[in-house]
Amino acid sequence: MSTVLLVIGVVIGVAYIYHHIVVKGERCTSQARLHGKTVIVTGSNTGIGKTTAIDLAQRGARVILACRCKNRGEAALEEIKRESGSNQVVFMQLDLGNLKSVRSFTETFLKSEPRLDILINNAGICLQGQTEDGFGLMFGVNHLGHFLLTNLLLGRLKECGASRIINVSSMAHNFGKVDFDCLNTNKALGLGTSFIRVLQIYCDSKLCNVLFNHELAKRLQGTKVTCYALHPGQ
């Protein structure tokens, strides 16, 4: 009985530590105001993205909700306006799994918005499938779509002075790898639909985020644009 209780205690302890360090993370204590700043948050109709958008709007930023689903995006728009008390929130449709949509979004944004101070590449999925362009779904949405989006917006970010690019990755990148043979043959990071295979490919896509961020940071040295990769909550 004592052994069972010990095991249960250890499991509860590990779960508590995991929740508070990995899941819950630290609470932001910054009091920074963002009046006059414009921010794009991809995947901001739910989860981390929506919470981020609410906080940014509360700080006075003009927040662009870049989301795939029009109905969910517009519903989130009303909720974020209500929660933040700000009318400086705009929905613009963006499907990261469709490179034509990425180009259309950036064209619309650049024509209608004079500033871009922060780009938060937050959207991500953990599903197998194919994008509109024939790429593996996680490779296309988690990496390629954001890669193209970022590069198309770099000029505006540079024009606006001290700007930031934030790539939401994951600690899961530590378990990722890039199989270039699979990429060349199948336009995907990996194949298979089992839970383990899907999880591995997700880890691979998060590694792509970190590698992209690392190379981009090197190329942006000497400019006023800085970029960061993060695990949510850390």
Rank of each mutant, 00 (worst) to 15 (best):
G9C: 09
G9S: 10
V10H: 09
I12M: 14
V14H: 13
V14L: 14
V14G: 13
H19F: 13
I21F: 15
K24I: 13
K24Q: 15
T29D: 15
S30E: 10
S30Y: 08
S30H: 06
Q31T: 14
Q31E: 15
Q31I: 14
A32I: 12
R33C: 13
G36V: 09
K37R: 13
N45R: 05
T46K: 08
I48P: 03
I48V: 03
G49W: 02
G49D: 02
T52H: 08
T52P: 10
I54G: 12
I54C: 13
L56S: 01
A57H: 05
Q58W: 12
Q58P: 12
R59K: 09
R59Q: 09
G60Q: 06
I64R: 03
L65W: 04
L65G: 02
A66D: 08
C67N: 05
R68I: 00
R68L: 01
C69P: 12
C69S: 15
N71Q: 14
N71S: 14
N71K: 15
G73A: 05
E74D: 10
A75E: 13
A76Q: 03
E78M: 11
I80W: 01
I80A: 01
I80E: 00
K81A: 07
K81I: 05
S84A: 04
G85E: 06
N87F: 11
N87C: 10
Q88N: 09
V89P: 03
F91L: 08
Q93E: 10
L94T: 04
N98S: 03
L99S: 01
S101G: 01
R103Q: 09
S104Q: 09
F105G: 04
E107R: 14
E107D: 15
F109A: 04
F109C: 05
F109T: 00
K111Y: 07
S112H: 15
E113Y: 07
P114M: 14
R115I: 14
I118C: 07
I118S: 06
L119M: 10
L119F: 06
I120W: 06
N121T: 14
A123Q: 00
A123I: 04
I125H: 08
Q128C: 14
Q128T: 15
G129A: 04
Q130K: 11
T131E: 00
T131C: 02
T131A: 00
M138T: 07
F139Y: 04
G140Q: 03
G140T: 02
H143R: 06
L148V: 10
L149H: 00
T150D: 03
T150V: 04
N151E: 09
